[in-house]
């Protein structure tokens, strides 16, 4: 057994495998399939200050080696999370993080203040990169100024770990990463989905009710890997990599590119036990290559 323990900002993870927000529900949906406490960190469904119905159906389209989604942050709001979901999660022996999104800075701050009170939630993932909402979301994450502003305001009220989830829909993702690092982000996670679209040629209609949506799955992996490498070379805080990870080799690639931990997203839909397989696979990889700790391979790409 290699040592898989890894520190990400203020978080201590038992292994570098986390689940990406919006692909793992509140975690408990996966309890039928596996022991979810094995996972290094679970990031629960995007949560907003008030409840949201999300976008109209259809919200999903399969595309080559991936899928587009336009869910639009459907959730019951932060108070519902605190009163009804949190009690079912607080005794699970892993790091449970809440992905937090908002339409205004005030919304982010108010929800973050409430989450700050939860003893068993060690951190938030600040979502400034959701491409599927009309207001807020990605709009905050596509300029250094607004990204810095929202991180600064939330940092004032939120004392636990703050991971900031970055959008790939920008010219230079390193600039945004540096801007949020300067305002006190404990780590950055990337990438959120790439903005895309699909049209049904026969009916001449878009597949999604919103026309555009977020692309995920193996189709985005080369782009994600490149961005993780760029950001890891730019910032000092830990980088959490994601984007189309389907197996152990994909996860290792992200770690070699500079990620200290990884998130598995879309793959959970196809194999709900994939996180356990990747945890075992990383251990096996380290043993095979004679490394004693996950720390030995972070950013260890040989050029």
């Amino acid at each position: 057994m290699a040592n898989l323990d890894i520190k990400i900002g203020k978080l201590q993870l038992k292994n570098p495998v986390m689940t990406a927000s919006g692909t793992f529900g509140y975690g408990t949906e996966y309890s039928d399939f596996m022991d979810i406490s094995r996972i290094g960190g679970i990031i629960v469904k995007g949560t907003t200050l008030r409840d949201r119905q999300g976008n109209q159906y259809p919200r999903m389209a399969e595309t080559p080696s991936g899928m587009l989604n336009a869910v639009g942050l459907q959730n019951k709001g932060v108070d519902y999370f605190i009163n009804h979901i949190y009690p079912t999660l607080k005794d699970i022996d892993t790091n449970i993080l809440v992905n937090l999104s908002g339409s205004t800075i005030e919304d982010y701050v108010e929800a973050a203040e409430r989450l700050n009170e939860l003893e068993k939630i060690p951190g938030i993932e600040l979502n400034i990169s959701c491409p599927n909402v009309k207001e807020g979301g990605m709009a905050f994450g596509t300029s250094c100024l607004s990204a810095a502003q929202v991180v600064r305001e939330v940092r004032r009220v939120y004392k636990n770990d703050m991971m900031v989830k970055l959008s790939p829909n920008v010219t230079d993702i390193s600039e945004i990463a540096l801007a949020v690092e300067a305002e006190g982000a404990d780590s950055v996670s990337l990438i959120n989905t790439l903005l895309g679209m699909a049209i049904n040629a026969e009916t001449r209609k878009p597949y999604l009710s919103t026309i555009t949506g977020g692309l995920s799955g193996p189709a985005v992996k080369p782009v994600a890997l490149r961005m993780v490498w760029q950001v890891a070379n730019a910032v000092k805080i830990p980088v959490v990599g994601m984007g189309g990870i389907m197996n152990t080799a994909d996860a290792i690639e992200f770690i070699l590119a500079g990620a200290s931990a990884i998130q598995i997203g879309t793959a959970n839909f196809i194999d709900p036990t994939i996180t356990g397989k990747v945890i075992d696979g990383i251990d096996d990889y380290l043993n095979r290559h004679g490394y004693s700790s996950i720390n030995d391979i972070i950013g260890a790409m040989e050029v």
């Binding site: 919006g22 692909t23 793992f24 529900g25 949906e29 996966y30 039928d32 469904k45 999300g54 159906y57 259809p58 919200r59 999903m60 389209a61 899928m67 989604n69 869910v71 459907q74 879309t266 959970n268 839909f269 709900p272």
Partner: peptide, 14 residues
């Protein structure tokens, strides 16, 4: 409805 996961986590088939 078209769906991804089938067990209530992707929220696509609403």
């Amino acid at each position: 409805n078209t769906m991804a996961c089938g067990f209530g986590t992707c929220l696509c088939c609403v």
